[in-house]
Design a binder for these strands. Structure first.
Lengths: 242, 242
DNA sequence: AAGTGGTCTAGACCACGTA
DNA sequence: ACGTGGTCTAGACCACTTG
């Protein structure tokens, strides 16, 4: 499994991929501890420092989390982490506010052309479409459309669609074993439609910030397409470039 | 200088700060090689592995750059890097396009209240204000206002303001020894003013993506405030969340 | 006390670039 | 051939958590 020798792939990279595979397969679940560095190094026939280097990279990618004296754990992406990591809207005092949300519609349909492209689905694939309004600082601020591939969320219809949690990523992980790891966002300025305007309590044509997000798993396969239109009168999108 | 012992700050952290200080002071300039890991470890009285760990962190922060077989170099942030790292506008085929730019105005004035706050200046401090239009894919797409603290760019007025380079960060580094290292961006949707509209060749009230950026040096001191208003009809802002 | 991650060492060999 | 960074080892000791 782990091979060494001249011109080979470095051991720590092989071990890193081995660890990723274990997590992707579900052998180690979010929140679980992985074997200690000593155990892994003995089982894999390498030194502890080599295992350590592999683990360090996955800690940097937020796949694993070290706790001194306790062990190394598969990250669980709870609502706090989702808010911290994936939610970039803050109020004008730079404070992150936990959004409230109310579902407007939730139904199954066939994917549109652009949805199939962005979620890498087959033509007219079955999808779930959720529309909701999110309230920040007690005023309706965002209107969101969420598209999920039907085959990944088979028993979705059994959920109470009028009572979904604010932070869906936690639900994806706990109920469907799907962990969102990264995302690509595209931002534009658009004019509010009549529909947007009525739900956000403003005039049609008002400029809104549109955030189109494709959320990906650890293996980079797309799991969710989300289009958020946000009133940026009292809030804005924050991005730090390091 | 480098101290060890029980309960002390770890050596590699001290060395990391030592390296940062050398670069901030200008002892090692962008593009220059730093001493080899062996040399540093001997001079500092630690093992090569410890120096290596310090250097690795700075490579991850883009402060240093390793070249196998050649050495380790202080990053120079040329126009390619500025485009890659700080310019997040792409066309709808996800292609990054080198923007062209034309200066509209360039003059000195006193800082406004909000400018003093965002650039951490004193009341009514001297600032340089540049206004320009940027052309992407051969259509005027962005209108930018750039605010620079006057005291950091003393002989700015001697430059040919109608002929500034597209990528100002390279100029800051080469002419003023100021390297932009990170930035904080705030994005909103706004309606085009008459002034915006006339330069971007569209109707007043059209939604524009406003990007307010504060650019920082390695020591986190703010150097530039830039407000860009962007027509997102054919382009958008792209952000990857890892 | 035992086990975990965190730091640090000293030394080996490999891969790459330059002279 | 030599010097650089890149990988890997074996072992030491420290800091933290749990039983």
């Amino acid at each position: 499994m782990i091979t060494s020798g001249k011109g080979a792939i470095p051991l720590y990279m092989q071990i890193r991929e081995f660890l990723i595979a274990k997590i992707s397969k579900g052998d180690w679940l979010p929140g679980d501890p992985i074997p200690s560095e000593m155990n892994l190094s003995q089982e894999l026939g390498v030194s502890q420092g080599t295992v350590r280097k592999a683990v360090t990279e996955l800690v940097e990618y937020n796949v694993l989390r070290r706790k001194q004296g306790r062990g190394t754990f598969v990250s669980n992406h709870d609502s706090q982490r989702a808010l911290f990591h994936f939610f970039h809207i803050v109020d004008d005092k730079e404070q992150k506010v936990m959004p409230d949300s109310k579902v407007l519609r939730c139904h199954r349909k066939h994917a549109s052309r652009s949805e199939t492209l962005k979620l890498q689905l087959e033509d007219r694939a079955d999808i779930i479409r959720i529309e909701r309004v999110r309230t920040l600082s007690s005023s309706p601020t965002m209107i969101e459309t969420i598209i999920l591939p039907g085959h990944l969320f088979k028993d979705w219809d059994e959920l109470d669609s009028s009572n979904l949690p604010n932070m869906l990523y936690e639900l994806y992980e706990k109920q469907y074993g799907i962990t969102i790891h990264s995302a690509e966002e595209r931002l534009r300025a658009v004019a509010a439609s009549k529909h947007d305007a009525s739900h956000l309590n403003l005039e049609p044509g008002t400029p809104l910030l549109e955030i189109e997000r494709v959320a990906l798993t650890l293996n980079k396969s797309p799991v969710e397409l989300r289009i958020s239109r946000c009133n940026t009168r009292k809030h804005h999108y924050e991005n730090t470039i390091l």
